[in-house]
Design a binder for these strands. Structure first.
Length: 350
RNA sequence: CGGCAGGACUA
């Protein structure tokens, strides 16, 4: 059953729920009994696909079979109900948990704290952290990273670093993610000195940087027009044997586009392919935006076709850039054509 | 064998 559970998890991660379901059925056929973990894994898969109905069906099915949903099962469901804003169902679930004598565990608290942070109400979020501690739950590094991220996004770096201190005082180790949110916060407050200091501190502590933290720094440098520093970091990344992701290049390409260096930007797109990174919709959006701003609609068009040839689906941002560009060169025919196309695809033009 | 936190396009 363990092997089957792992297989199911694998397919869920790929978003291939049909295959996961097939394995689930196959399991029963050969006489293996799915357990709590099998169901919980499948429920998680459904939630990540956004089909809360299927998840709930599985939940009912597992209860009917006499299996007991545990803190994982509830944690996953709480996460999804919150995300979908289904507060009525969420409270039903919490009541049910109460009846069974299950209380929220740290991960589920983290989920809720994250949800509150996203509403921007940091008082409420840190209040919940206090409640959690009062109830003798131990906040972990995820809890603190979540709170710190909330304060960083609110631009409140004092509180962010205060919570970092609190975290350290409790003997919790910050990790790459903790540093990423802080560095991102400081660089967005235009405090590169502190951002870079934290980066050094992290390296000193032996915490390994990853592709995301590099793209945060690269992006910060690019936004301030410091392309030299940005490409230096890009090289450093390579040297550390890190696999570049499209986001890393996006930052650099963004920097080039903002300076109107479109030739360099296109060069980066090629380089990216060679490095094994896959350009995403946002990558093309950056380039298309760059060319549209310059009124170079031939290139913009070329990239639009290229992206579709790569099975990337242009979104509303893409088309709005194109409209903007054609407006700039006074080509109303094309503007109308694209507007109609967008309407057909139910995309919003602005 | 299962759940929670981080970056990039939005003119």
């Amino acid at each position: 059953a363990i092997i089957y559970n792992s297989l199911i998890k694998g397919f869920c991660e790929l978003g291939n729920m049909q295959e996961a379901d097939r394995i689930f059925k196959e399991m029963s056929e050969i006489g293996l009994v799915p357990n709590e973990i099998t169901y919980t894994t499948l429920i998680d898969g459904c939630c990540k696909k956004g089909s809360l109905q299927d998840a709930h069906k599985l939940y009912v099915e597992m209860v009917k079979k006499g299996l007991t949903p545990d803190k994982f099962t509830y944690g996953i469901l709480v996460h999804q109900y919150w995300k979908e804003g289904e507060l009525v169902n969420l409270f039903k679930l919490l009541d049910e948990m109460g009846e069974k004598g299950l209380s929220l565990d740290t991960a589920t608290y983290n989920t809720i704290i994250h949800g509150i942070c996203n509403t921007g109400n940091m008082q409420e979020a840190s209040h919940l952290l206090k409640v959690m501690i009062d109830k003798k739950y131990t906040p972990n590094h995820v809890t603190y990273s979540t709170i710190i991220d909330g304060y960083c996004k609110a631009g409140n770096m004092q509180y962010a670093s205060m919570y970092l201190k609190e975290m350290l005082d409790k003997g919790l180790m910050p990790n790459t993610i903790t540093y990423t949110v802080l560095i991102d916060g400081y660089s967005k407050q235009d405090n590169m000195v502190e951002a870079l200091r934290l980066f050094d501190e992290m390296i000193d502590k032996g915490i390994a940087p990853d592709a995301i933290i590099y793209s945060v720094l690269i992006n910060a440098h690019c936004k301030r027009g410091n392309l030299k520093e940005a490409s230096k970091l890009c090289k450093e990344m390579y040297e550390k044997g890190m696999v570049p992701v499209s986001g890393t290049y996006d930052a650099l390409i963004c920097g080039c586009c903002n300076e109107g260096r479109m030739t360099d930007a296109v060069k980066l797109l090629d380089e990216m392919a060679k490095g094994g990174a896959v350009p995403g919709v946002s990558t093309y959006n950056l380039l298309i935006h760059g060319f549209c701003k310059q009124g170079n609609m031939e290139e913009a068009c070329r990239l639009l076709t290229e992206m579709m040839n790569r099975d990337l689906i242009p979104n509303d941002t893409t088309y709005n850039y194109m409209i903007d560009g054609y407006n700039k060169v006074g080509n109303t025919d094309e503007v109308n054509k694209i507007s109609n196309k967008m309407a057909e695809m139910k995309l919003v033009a602005d």
